[in-house]
């Protein structure tokens, strides 16, 4: 199957106005594609419009709440009206909700799951029939996480959604084998993004009603920023996604340092099968 990364083709990137999404959008624009940058945050969209202005008419920034199916329907209409066909769908939008599952508020689960898993499911629902229908090479790539393959002790709500995203992309790839559409999953480790700064932008619909401790929130964000600031740059990750799309690679990782953690999970299962 030939790949869809060609000048004149069109890509759609959710969470595309910052972080990994913006890195992917820039890589696609560099490759000559038209790119729809979809994001829920107006401030990020404003900055993305400015950053992507040199691409002119090839970059279009739109507002999209990935948890809203009506928003997705409108997005498809925009793509079909402007460029007729979508070739690359990057389901990247995500929010980092960490902390205890047991002590969590219901709203924590609802928000994380609506964006991190529901947003991907909605995107596939909105665009897969379109992508299959036009018959040209097309590709869906979703951003999961290393947390979609291994768990930590404070990220259960996040990991549960991200495990589901890995399963969806593996299944889609299997189901779509032999068709014009393929699928991959991106499992980033540390990347210099704002994913754990989202708490302050939590939509009212997912407000837990709990008054946040500002000092604690500041400390948590500072810690996350400090760690992630040492990670890969989003531009590097965008380039990795570009390479993976060209190669039709099933999995995309951003750091080989994660190997021992995945081996630990594999070995735990092998030991449970009596094979270690």
């Amino acid at each position: 199957m030939s790949h869809p990364v060609h000048p004149g083709n069109t890509a759609f990137v959710t969470g595309g106005a910052s972080g990994i999404g913006l890195g992917i959008a820039q890589a696609m624009l560099d490759a000559g594609l038209n790119v729809v940058v979809a994001d829920v945050r107006a401030d990020h969209l404003d900055r993305a419009r400015e950053a992507l202005a040199p691409a002119g008419e090839r970059a279009l920034c739109i507002r999209l709440n990935v948890g809203d199916r009506d928003d997705w329907r409108r997005s498809r209409e925009i793509v079909e009206e402007r460029w007729r066909k979508l070739h690359i769908l990057c389901l990247n939008a995500g929010v980092g909700v960490l902390g205890s599952m047991v002590e969590s508020e219901a709203a924590d689960w609802e928000w994380s799951t609506a964006v991190n898993l529901g947003g991907v499911l909605n995107g596939v629902e909105a665009f897969l029939p379109h992508m299959r229908g036009h018959g040209e090479p097309a590709h869906i790539i979703a951003t999961s996480s290393m947390g979609g393959l291994i768990v930590a002790n404070d990220g259960g709500i996040y990991s549960s959604a991200k495990y589901g995203v890995v399963a969806l992309m593996e299944g889609l790839r299997r189901d779509l084998a032999g068709t014009s559409v393929s699928a991959s999953v991106l499992c980033p480790a540390a990347v210099n993004t704002n994913i754990f700064d989202h708490e302050r932008m939590r939509p009212e619909a997912f407000n837990s009603g709990i008054t946040r401790d500002e000092d604690e929130l500041n400390r948590a964000e500072a810690l996350a920023r400090n760690i992630l600031s040492h990670g890969r740059s989003p531009r590097e990750v965008g380039a990795m996604v570009y390479e993976a799309l060209v190669a039709n690679a099933p999995y995309v990782f951003t750091d080989n340092g994660v190997r021992p953690t995945l081996v630990a999970r594999r070995d735990a299962l092998l030991a449970s099968a009596g094979a270690l």
């Binding site: 480790a189 540390a190 990782f253 951003t254 080989n256």
Partner: peptide
């Protein structure tokens, strides 16, 4: 796939 990735 991890083995084909460089170190971050």
């Amino acid at each position: 796939a991890i083995d084909a990735t460089s170190a971050g």
